[in-house]
């Protein structure tokens, strides 16, 4: 069939419809970014790996609330994972421990997602493509950050909420929901801190480095190198404040702040500093990411 016949056969039709406000493009970008990720098999592998920890916590909660274990075994099991021995509600430290633990597999997942969702936008000239459709810098930045945050939340915040709900469903009384609503608020707060800081960090790094290998090396180094330095400095000076140089420890301290689980005044002070450091790092990352998007013409 000749091409001219093709054109004649399929005549052009106009389109008449209302166009939505530009803010909707944030949703579009988030949706497409997540769809891209879901089409990668390696994403499902890392997701499954990340959810193993969730399955373990889920099973433990089930075991201690539904099975008649010897009380000593039950106490040991619960305290090992940070939960309160009485098993009536999830102790806050359990959630901090679970979410921080999940965050470590999330960093691996983000190293992979960063190059696909943000790096490729710069590498393949997609930023000018988005902007030529009328998107402002803020729409692109928010669209990408929400997509990244959703990935983090899928492995940290959402499973933690499920664990909280599991406790509630297995508890003997409906009072559980009223007595422990603060835990839910803390889970959401900590999940937001975790998602926000990690999403901004990986987005900023991916915008500048763009390819997977340098992104992964830099991103993982950010959590390994400062940890070694912070530990060494802390030992050498006998001052635990040096530990705040470790971003991963800061995230853990931020969890204590969100759940208000301090065992000493020093821990409270460290949590305050950790929040400050994370806020500054997040703002710097946001500035750098925005600047890079703006400069991509």
């Amino acid at each position: 069939m000749g091409f001219s016949m093709l054109v004649d056969r399929a005549l052009y039709h106009g389109w008449e419809g209302r166009l939505r406000p530009r803010i909707w493009t944030v949703v579009t970008l988030t949706k497409v970014s997540l769809a891209q990720l879901w089409r990668r098999k390696s994403f499902w592998f890392l997701l499954a790996l990340g959810l193993l920890n969730f399955v373990m916590y889920f099973s433990i909660i089930y075991a201690v609330t539904q099975l008649e274990l010897p009380s000593r075994a039950q106490d040991n099991l619960m305290s090992r994972f940070g939960f309160r021995p009485d098993a009536e509600s999830g102790h806050e430290n359990g959630y901090v421990s679970f979410m921080t633990g999940q965050g470590q597999i999330v960093t691996l997942l983000l190293a992979f997602a960063g190059s696909l969702l943000v790096g490729s936008d710069f590498r393949l000239g997609l930023i000018p493509f988005y902007r030529s459709r009328g998107l402002r810098v803020r729409h692109i930045v928010w669209g990408k950050l929400i997509a990244m945050s959703t990935i983090v939340a899928a492995l940290t915040l959402f499973p933690a909420i499920l664990l909280f709900v599991e406790y509630g469903l297995f508890s003997a009384s409906h009072d559980y929901w009223w007595e422990n609503w603060r835990i839910l608020v803390s889970i959401v707060l900590y999940g937001t801190i975790l998602s926000g800081t990690l999403a901004v960090g990986i987005s900023a790094i991916s915008a500048y480095l763009q390819k997977m290998a340098p992104i992964a090396i830099t991103w993982i180094s950010l959590f390994v190198v400062p940890r070694i330095g912070a530990t060494q400095m802390s030992r050498a000076t006998d001052n635990r404040m040096w530990l705040l140089l470790d971003p991963w420890r800061d995230i853990r301290y931020a969890g204590r702040w969100a759940f208000q689980t301090y065992s000493s005044e020093r821990q409270e002070m460290q949590a305050g500093w950790a929040i400050l450091i994370l806020s500054v790092l997040t703002l710097l990352g946001l500035w750098a990411f925005r600047r890079k998007v703006r400069s991509a013409q």
């Binding site: 166009l19 497409v32 393949l124 459709r133 009328g134």
Partner: peptide, 24 residues
């Protein structure tokens, strides 16, 4: 240039462009 969004199919790419222009 070839600003093609990785892993999308042809119709998804065109629909994405439409959504970015403001279409539902």
């Amino acid at each position: 240039t070839r600003p093609l969004v990785p892993l999308l199919k042809g119709y998804e790419y065109v629909a994405l462009s439409g959504e970015l222009y403001g279409m539902a």
